[in-house]
């Protein structure tokens, strides 16, 4: 029994405790680190269709042998009482060709509002081949009460897009980004 009373195990227990607590703290941090890791992973692989590739004007040759249908889809979140739609529902483009399309948005409230458009692309693999030169999703959009306007998107498709993809959907969801409103939750206790 005396061997249990020597400081050996006592010190050792402390160090096990210490090491385990360190592991816990590291893993707690890892939970948060998954946020940037996930984003980096998505950008790397282009999955999830959410990366906004800002392209420069320099551009490869157009590939006139291929035609890709680009569809435009507009959604708005439950908290944003706006009208929001693409001017045309789809266009046919050659890879490499620069096109401009517009989306129409109309603030139906009689107060100024700020909207933020979140892009999403289907199929996800196509996301990294859609290059945007100009997009209303790059910035928050300020609308006066009742204001309506057209907002442009200028883009081209990287000619390296895999041959299996013939249709690509560019979707925007407009969220309320007005400073005084809460974005999620606090509606009714709909979940309860």
């Amino acid at each position: 029994m005396n061997n249990l009373a020597d400081p050996g195990p006592r010190k050792s227990n402390r160090s096990v405790l210490f090491q385990a607590v360190v592991v816990c703290l590291v893993m707690f941090g890892f939970g948060f680190a998954m946020v940037p890791l996930y984003r980096a992973f998505c950008n790397l692989t282009g999955i999830n269709g959410r990366m906004a590739v800002v392209a420069t004007e320099t551009l490869a040759q157009s590939d006139l042998t291929r035609v890709i249908t680009v569809q435009f889809v507009a959604n708005r979140n439950q908290y944003l009482p706006w009208e929001f739609k693409p001017e045309v529902s789809s266009v046919q483009v050659h890879p490499g060709e620069i096109r401009t399309v517009t989306f129409f948005a109309h603030n139906l409230r009689d107060v100024p509002m700020v909207g933020r458009a979140v892009p999403s692309i289907a199929p996800g693999e196509a996301a990294k081949y859609l290059r945007k030169l100009e997009c209303f999703c790059f910035n928050e959009q300020h609308f006066a009460s009742g204001e309506a306007r057209n907002m442009p998107v200028r883009f081209y498709i990287d000619p390296r897009i895999p041959p299996g993809i013939d249709t690509l959907t560019l979707s925007y969801t407009f969220f309320d980004a007005s400073p005084q409103t809460t974005m999620v939750g606090d509606k009714t206790a709909a979940g309860s």
Partner: peptide, 29 residues
């Protein structure tokens, strides 16, 4: 000890999204 802290992190992020205006899981932000 490897995964319970990850859960703690996940629910902390939920708490922050709800009350502190962060956007870990909110597409709008």
């Amino acid at each position: 000890i490897a995964v319970m802290p990850v859960l703690a992190g996940a629910v902390t992020m939920l708490l922050m999204d709800k009350y502190f205006g962060t956007s870990f899981f909110n597409a709008a932000g």
